[in-house]
């Protein structure tokens, strides 16, 4: 498959405008630029090759069908990702199969390690540590935090803000406590 040099130099959004105007070469360039991302993304999430190929084809055919819905002020790659993900979820729902959610193992470990670091901040009170732990480790919102610590939501926000300031001060070596 050869591509025209002019189209190669254009960004995705410019190519989408050309594609919306009926230029099939623009689609070809977009396809060749991004097919590997879509294919690999689906391969990691679906159990068998047939399913991957079906969702892959559906994704690009959906892109084609909905090309006029694309607004050039948004990034094409984000739009393509949204289409691919919704096609994946639709497929899994229809076929009643469970797709594999992506987990970045390295990042997950990093987050756990971060939680242990809280003990290193001597200037934090127990309540502040507990609040930060509920906020960042348990992923609770202010409503849940206020209920757990038996304080008002505005108080929880104040404690959180104070704790963050203390951490910042510690990190910048400006700890007066």
């Amino acid at each position: 498959m050869t591509l025209t040099g002019n189209a190669q130099k254009m960004n995705d959004e410019q190519l989408m405008i050309k594609y919306q105007d009926g230029d099939h070469k623009a689609f070809e360039v977009l396809y060749l630029r991004h097919e590997s991302k879509v294919y690999a993304y689906l391969r990691k999430r679906l159990p068998d090759q047939d399913s991957v190929e079906e969702v892959f084809q559906n994704t690009f055919l959906k892109v084609h069908k909905s090309r006029f819905h694309f607004k050039p002020k948004f990034l094409f790659i984000q739009w393509l990702y949204t289409v691919a993900r919704s096609e994946l979820l639709d497929f899994c729902k229809k076929k009643k199969i469970i797709h594999i959610e992506y987990v970045d193992q390295g990042k997950a470990k990093e987050e756990i390690d971060d939680s242990l670091d809280l003990d290193n901040y001597k200037n934090l009170s127990d309540k502040e540590k507990e609040l930060l732990s509920l906020k960042f480790i348990s992923d609770n919102d202010y409503e849940e935090i206020s209920a757990a610590l038996n304080i008002s939501q505005s108080n929880a926000r104040k404690i959180f803000s104070r704790a963050i300031k203390k951490i910042k001060a510690t990190l910048s070596g400006d700890n007066n406590d």
């Binding site: 097919e35 590997s36 879509v38 190929e53 892959f56 990702y81 691919a84």
Partner: peptide
């Protein structure tokens, strides 16, 4: 992960999609 993934799709599928469009 989507952005960083890379694996070329089978050629026959690519041809079929491009031809259809």
């Amino acid at each position: 992960d989507f952005i960083n993934s890379k694996e070329v799709a089978p050629r026959n599928i690519s041809h079929s999609i491009i031809d259809r469009v």
